[in-house]
Amino acid sequence: MTEIISIIPARGGSKGIPGKNIRPLVGKPLIVHSILDCRESRLVNQTLVTTDDPQIAAVARDYGAQIIDRPAELASDTASSEVALLHALLEIEKQGVEPELIVFLQCTSPLRTGQDIDWAIAQFREEGADSLLSVSPSHRFLWQKVDGQAQSINYDYCDRQRRQDMNPQYMENGSIYIFKPWVLKELNNRLGGKISLFIMPEEQSYEIDSLADLKHVEILMTQKLS
């Protein structure tokens, strides 16, 4: 059976915000917003939540997600998202599912919609991509320190251009990733092959990494609902 599956990794050991993935956000646990985005999508056939935490599993199951029990060694602070994604993919393949595409969603990016997911999938197919990431426009002048010396990264400070005259630049916003299974299996990466950029507005690109982020996103979501 060929289909499009979404995978939402959600481990239980968040240190920045304890219990982050099931912390309430405008009346629903954080992870639920991503599950509902998948249910709103017309193109996603199945939603998986890979977790090591029984509470997260129970919440996700109540909202219609299939649970992939993630081994503890794949849920440590140092374990990458890719190892969790690969484990989930192999587990679903054991059930006879052969995904055409995998949509990887991070529950820390709750401002996307199911329509955004469908638009991203449509763009993926139209461009003949192998992988896709969502981005938002960036207009920042970036610097770095090398051997104690300041260096401009994305512009020449001796010939400063107006921002509107610079080549378009984009920031990875962590909201949507799409890839063909071979990309993950062969490259051990969410990105590879022909990469497509799905551009989202900045106001949809906030990620929740702190309590301040959580409060800010809640204000935005409350305003949208009012």
Rank of each mutant, 00 (worst) to 15 (best):
Q223H: 06
K185R: 08
S34V: 12
R61T: 05
K94Y: 06
I208F: 07
E218W: 10
Y63G: 00
I31V: 11
L220P: 04
E172C: 15
C158M: 12
A58Q: 06
Q106H: 05
L36K: 10
M171T: 12
R190H: 09
M200Y: 08
I102Q: 00
W182Q: 04
F179W: 02
T2H: 06
I121E: 06
D116H: 08
L133C: 09
L225G: 04
L86N: 07
L184E: 02
I195W: 01
A65G: 04
A60F: 01
F124I: 02
G27R: 06
S81D: 14
I117H: 03
P181L: 00
V146A: 05
S41M: 07
Q223S: 10
N188M: 08
G128D: 02
K94A: 04
M1P: 04
G96P: 09
D130S: 10
R140A: 14
S226I: 11
D77I: 14
L133F: 08
D130C: 09
L25G: 01
L74V: 09
P71Y: 06
G12Q: 13
S34Y: 08
K194M: 04
M171Y: 14
K215D: 07
D62L: 08
I22N: 07
S80H: 03
E186P: 02
E40Q: 11
C158D: 08
S81N: 15
T113F: 07
